[in-house]
């Protein structure tokens, strides 16, 4: 089985959120997100991002969308369209129907259930529309908020992923069987 990529980028909607394609006009917000020390704390990413660099990043992401079939959504809280975070499905292994999920949210919107609402929507899209078999995620052990979000969504620690990455990272995964069983 192979992934069937949609012809048009899949903009999604939840009760409180718009999940839309990342645009070059998001550069200022992307730069702010990627410059936030709290957001970068567990990513090991340098905490300074210019708007110029953010534009380059967005161009790269959109190139990945075209060439590699990535999905990279900007998270916007209704009714505004302004980006407050991002979520992506990337590192696709079409033969295995396996992808990696990554997400980040500006601190002002954390603790409000925004990421939970986002992930529920993306998992539904990934398993039910894309027909994925497995979604992986890597997070730092100390990133409690990220671990909680993953576990709340039935991700489990995956030893096969743990061995592959650095000691401080935990590999989590969720397969389609577990996803559908949890949905009931």
């Amino acid at each position: 089985m192979h992934l069937q990529y949609p012809f048009i980028f899949p903009a999604l909607e939840t009760p409180r959120l718009w999940l839309r394609q990342l645009l070059i006009t998001d550069a200022g917000r992307v730069a702010a997100l990627r410059s936030d020390e709290q957001v970068n704390k567990y990513l090991g990413r340098p905490a300074h991002t210019s708007i110029e660099e953010a534009r380059g990043f967005i161009e790269m992401i959109n190139k990945g969308l075209e060439e590699k079939g990535w999905f990279y959504w900007a998270i916007a809280v209704k009714p505004a369209a302004a980006l407050v975070g991002t979520i992506c499905l990337w590192n696709l292994e079409p033969e295995k129907m396996e992808v990696e999920i990554g997400f980040e949210l500006v601190p002002a919107y954390q603790g409000k259930g925004i990421m939970q609402e986002t992930i529920e929507c993306i998992l539904r899209y990934g398993f039910e529309t894309l027909k994925l078999e497995k979604i992986n995620s890597f997070t730092e052990k100390e990133n409690i908020a990220s671990v909680k979000v993953l576990e709340r969504n039935h991700f489990k620690e995956d030893e096969t992923l743990k061995a592959a990455e650095s000691e401080s990272l935990i590999g989590y995964s969720l397969n389609s069987t577990t996803y559908y069983a949890a949905r009931g």
Partner: peptide, 11 residues
């Protein structure tokens, strides 16, 4: 003018 000013001393 650069984002991240709250965490930055200077640049």
């Amino acid at each position: 003018e650069w984002p991240g000013g709250a965490d930055r001393k200077r640049a």
